[in-house]
């Protein structure tokens, strides 16, 4: 055949062929007969690059959520095993009773739009295509509204993959107040954004308990190990969220905000009056909140707790010292 078959056509043809087969096709069947492979197939061997192509294609197809199965079967004679591939239609098709209303479609459009930047943008885009496939028109979308979720932490993608694959990870973690990065072995269960920051919740295997870590404090790369783990019962993301909420409510600072300043506008919006002109503001993490408060310079005076006063003073003193002398 003169014209080369496009990657798109080869993948599409592979999906169609594997959906159409009940018993499955062997790799030899596929390479010799499916559009896009057969044109390059050499009977009698020398198909190594084509085989590698097939391995990549399988991964690309599975990545889309297509249940491409490999069934290992003993050969009729001899000891050689062979594998048959197929896509069981019952597991490919969207269950018939899953339907969406136009209002739900509009909400899902917006949900997908929130991920237009960063690591889950491709997934959201493809999810939308699949929703469109159902032929349901979206209710009038919410105009002039563009939410945006970001996952800029380098640890986000490797952790998400490890959660999907149920693999134990190892990473360096710098706890505030500790000078040294410590290695942690964690069975990751969920990623949770709280207070605008991403956290990973999992089982700390050394401490033998559930822990929540801030992604921004992970130092260096997240390494996935070969060790798998059983996911515990329950809804880890919900449990982590509850835990973070509890910490947030327990941490309360009393602040004096200089009137008509940026601090009064922004911290004041988040807090509640607490008498004597002071404002009570809740926070998740003392070190991060101290950074935030220090940025407001003289616009904020921390009244309590003492640990926060110390932390803010230490930060301001460090910044003043680093910018003190003229020679740098």
């Amino acid at each position: 055949m003169a014209a080369a078959v496009s990657n798109e056509e080869r993948l599409f043809s592979l999906v169609l062929a594997l959906l159409a087969t009940e018993t499955g096709l062997t790799k030899a069947d596929i390479l010799s007969s499916v559009q896009g492979y057969r044109q390059r197939y050499r009977p009698g061997g020398g198909n190594a690059s084509l085989e590698r192509q097939f391995e990549r294609d399988k991964e690309d197809i599975r990545d889309l959520g297509v249940p491409l199965e490999s069934i290992e079967l003993p050969a009729d004679q001899g000891a050689v095993q062979y594998t048959r591939y197929r896509i069981p239609k019952g597991e490919y098709d969207l269950p018939a009773d899953v339907t969406f209303t136009p209002k739900e479609i509009a909400l899902l459009d917006l949900a997908a739009l929130a991920w237009r930047e960063g690591s889950l943008s491709g997934e959201s885009r493809r999810a939308l295509m699949k929703l469109r496939s159902l032929g349901i028109d979206s209710e009038e979308p919410l105009i002039g509204f563009a939410p945006r979720l970001r996952a800029r932490d380098a640890a986000f993608d490797p952790l998400r993959e490890a959660i999907e694959r149920r693999r134990v990870v190892v990473f360096g973690y710098l706890k505030p107040g500790e000078a040294k990065v410590r290695r942690r072995r964690v069975a990751p269960l969920a990623l949770v954004q709280f207070g605008g920051r991403w956290h990973v919740h999992g089982i700390d295997l050394a401490a033998k308990g559930r822990r929540t870590f801030l992604l921004s404090r992970i130092a260096g790369a997240v390494e996935e190990t070969a060790d798998g783990f059983e996911a515990p019962d329950g809804q880890p993301a919900e449990e982590a969220r509850e835990g973070l909420r509890a910490v947030f409510h327990a941490n309360r600072a009393l602040l004096e905000l200089a009137p008509d300043t940026d601090a009064a506008a922004r911290l004041g919006s988040r807090g509640a009056p607490a008498g004597d002109g002071a404002v009570a503001v809740h926070f998740s993490d003392l070190a991060l909140f101290a950074d935030e408060v220090a940025a407001f310079g003289p616009e904020v005076l921390v009244l309590e707790p003492a640990e926060l006063i110390d932390a803010v003073r230490a930060r301001l003193a460090a910044v003043a010292a680093a910018h003190g002398s003229t020679d740098g």
Binding site: L19, L64, G65, P67, L94, L120, S124
Partner: peptide, 30 residues
């Protein structure tokens, strides 16, 4: 031939939509 129904979502696609939903759920009138 071969296909007539819409495909399922991948686990990751569903996760992205679910997280996006939770995010926009904080909005009034949403």
């Amino acid at each position: 031939v071969a296909i007539d129904d819409s495909p399922r979502f991948s686990a990751r696609e569903a996760a992205a939509l679910i997280a996006g939903l939770q995010y926009i759920a904080a909005l009034p009138a949403n």
